[in-house]
Design a protein around this nucleic acid. Structure first.
Lengths: 217, 217
DNA sequence: GTCTATAGGTAGATAGAC
DNA sequence: GTCTATCTACCTATAGAC
C-alpha cells in the first residue's frame, strides 16, 4: 500500500485529512487575523482553534505570512458577486437597488472576512497580489462602462461613475466594518435585520433620487 | 535652585522638556500605530522616531497601552469640527456641501489619524473610552435634530437622519482610509487635489439631489 | 530627568521521535 | 502525517548608575 493512500482516522485518505486540516486552519486563521490583525494573531491560537498542535500548522504552511496570504487570496473570490447586478440589460433603478441589497447582505453574512479585508487595505494592501488588484480594476472598468451607457441613454443624470461606485462601496461596507460606530449612531448595541433594511432603503432611495432624471421615481 | 526649575538643553525648563518629549512621543506613536497597529508597533521604534532612548519613553508612559490610549484620546478632538457645519441657522444645501468638503479636507490632511481611528473601530473600539463614545453619540443626536427640523420645515424630503449621516461619514472617510482601493478605482497611484474635489462634488450633488424637494437644485 | 544594561517572558519556527 | 520539546530571537518593562 503506497504511503499516499495509507488509511488513518477511520477511513479518511491522507488527501482528505490534508484538505480538511488546511480548511480548518484557514477558517480559524481568518477569524483570528480579522480580530487581532497580522501581528496580533498568534500561531499557537490559530493551531488551537483549528484543533491541531502548532507544529502541524507548520507542516501545512511554512510561515505565518503564508497563512495570511492564503486567507487574503480567499477573500477576493466573493468580491464581484454583488457587482453582477450592475448590468446593461437591467434598468438602473432595479440594478442599483439589487446591488445595494446584495452588498449589504454579503457584508452582513461575512463580517469577519469583510473586516479582515478592510484591515488589509488600511494597512496599505501590501499582501494583495498584483493579479488580485488587476482583477478588481478590470471588473470596476466593466461596470463603469455600464453606468456610462445608462447616462448616454438618458437613463441617469451625468455623474462620475468611479466616484459613484466608491460611494456605494463605502456606504454598504460601513455597517459591518465599523459596527461600533453604526451602533452608537443608531442607538443600539447590535445591528439587526431592520437596521440593514433601513440602511438599504436610505442608500438606494437617496442615490436613486439623486441620479434618476426628474419624475422617474 | 529647585530641581523642577533646573535649566537644561539651552535654557528650556523641565516643564518645557516634558511637554515637548510627550508631544514627540505621541506624534511618533500615532504614525507607527497607524501603520502597524497596536501589536505591530514596537516601543523601540516609537522611541527612535521621537529621538529618545527607549527607557525615556517609559519614563513618561508606564506601558504601551497607555501610549495607545493617549493617542486615541487625541483623535476624538478633531471628530466634531466638520459637524459644526450642520446647523439649523443654515440652509441644508449650503450646510451639507460645507460638511462634505470639510470632512474630506480633514481626512486628507490627517490621513494617519483617520486610519488609526478606523483601525481602532474595526477592532471593536476597545480602547475608546465610554466618555468618548458618549460624546460622539451626543453630538450625533444634536445633528439628527437639525436634519429633523429641516424635514419638518419642508426643506428636505423625509429621510432617516442617522443612516444619512452614516452615508456621509463612510463616503468622506473612504478616500483617506482605503486609499489603495480608491486609487485602483480611479486609475491613479496617489490621490490628488482634483480627486478630492471630484469626490466632494459627486457626494454633495448626488445626496442633495436625492434629498432636496423637486426643483430646488 | 537621562540612559545603559538586562531581566523576564513570549512567539515564530524547527528537530526529531513516533 | 502527528506531536513534544526546544531553540532562537526579540520585545516589554525595569533596575540602577549618572
Amino acid at each position: 500500500m503506497p504511503a499516499t493512500k495509507a488509511r488513518k482516522n477511520g477511513g479518511d485518505t491522507d488527501e482528505k485529512i490534508r484538505a480538511r486540516n488546511i480548511r480548518e486552519i484557514l477558517k480559524a486563521a481568518t477569524e483570528i487575523f480579522s480580530r487581532k490583525g497580522f501581528d496580533g494573531a498568534r500561531i499557537a491560537e490559530i493551531a488551537e482553534a483549528s484543533g491541531l498542535p502548532k507544529a502541524n500548522v507548520y507542516y501545512y504552511f511554512s510561515s505565518k505570512e503564508e497563512i495570511y496570504r492564503a486567507v487574503i487570496e480567499h477573500l477576493i473570490e466573493g468580491w464581484d458577486d454583488a457587482f453582477a447586478h450592475i448590468s446593461v440589460d437591467r434598468e438602473p433603478q432595479d440594478a442599483i437597488r439589487s446591488y445595494v441589497a446584495a452588498k449589504l447582505s454579503y457584508t452582513r453574512r461575512n463580517v469577519i472576512e469583510s473586516r479582515l479585508f478592510a484591515n488589509e487595505i488600511i494597512r496599505g494592501a501590501q499582501f494583495l497580489s498584483r493579479k488580485d488588484r488587476q482583477h478588481m480594476r478590470t471588473i470596476t472598468d466593466e461596470k463603469v462602462k455600464v453606468i456610462e451607457d445608462w447616462i448616454a441613454a438618458g437613463k441617469l443624470r451625468p455623474v462620475d461613475p468611479r466616484h459613484l461606485f466608491i460611494m456605494l462601496w463605502s456606504a454598504t461596507q460601513f455597517y459591518a466594518d465599523f459596527e461600533p460606530l453604526a451602533c452608537d449612531a443608531l442607538h443600539t448595541t447590535k445591528l439587526k435585520g431592520v437596521d440593514y433594511a433601513h440602511a438599504a432603503e436610505t442608500i438606494s432611495e437617496t442615490v436613486l433620487r439623486g441620479l434618476l432624471p426628474a419624475g422617474q421615481i
